[in-house]
Amino acid sequence: MARMKNDYENSWWPKLMRWLDNGSTALDDRMEEEMEETHEGHLLPSPEEIAAQEARREERIQQKLTDELELYARAHHWSRTKGTKIADWAYRILAVVICVSIIWVLLQTASYLPSFGSPDNPAHNEVSRRYIEKGMEETGAVNIVAGMILDYRAFDTLGESNVLFVAACSVMILLRVSSDKKHHISSVHQLEMEADDRMYEPKDDLILQRATAFLVPVILLFGVYGLLNGHISPGGGFSGGAIMGAGLILYLNAYGFQKAQRFFTFTVFKAISACALSFYALSKAYSFFTGANHLPSFITPGTPGNLFSAGLIPYLNIAVGLVVCCTMYAFYTHFRKGDM
């Protein structure tokens, strides 16, 4: 309403009427002036006024900022001077106290343990006796551990391999920078992110490359040896796979992603992991259903000590080793670059 009235007062008809009347009083004039002034201030502020207002606002903001900084400094003064020292000391004292208490708890627990190696320990029950006495005969594995984890308790080991695979999947979900390959190459941002903290990293180090060229084949061979002889000598899927994964990581470090991608990409990872896990699950399911105790099966233990013996154990070892190797490599690449 008011605005309409104002507009009406400024419009040409009342002005004409006023002019016709010619009887504007002093009071009216002043009111008009005031109104005009306020109008001017509201609608069309001059540049100087704008600048002044801006300056005032800037000043207010500056004032507020300095006040806040002062307050901040005052609030954090104690924690930055005396507080740090106290926290330092508390940290040291707490570290010692926690270490000592953990040591005390562990020693206390150890004193309640049954004496080492005595025959009536709870661990020496019929299960372990069965493993030790009949393990080689039933599973065909000279390495009793391999016979246990890949024959008697193969289901448990399947779960462990799947845990590794699931861990690799979660790391990929969390850390994978881009799943789209084309987009990945074209995007400048992605390239910058990739270069980011590794820009100054020494690349193509000749010394490392020469040492790697000598070491990686030996490491991979050793891993394969551990994998294939898991049922004969100490070793097996987990340790052999870890050694192979370490060799691959060393190769990647020496020669860079471009060369490693020639033989190990995300597709290869997917294929190897999925095939190994499915092979494990299917073959072990078959042997669960057919080769349980007192049921005949064509998978026989064979002659213990031979390379091709111990039923499914060498093949399961290979499957587990491949999964472990791929998982280690995937962890490394995803934590370092976010892609394979």
């Binding site: 180090d205 010394i207 490392l208 040492a211 000598f214 070491l215």
Partner: peptide, 10 residues
């Protein structure tokens, strides 16, 4: 002797 000097160098 292969691994340690190389890692120190890196």
């Amino acid at each position: 002797w292969l691994a340690s000097p190389v890692s120190s160098h890196l």
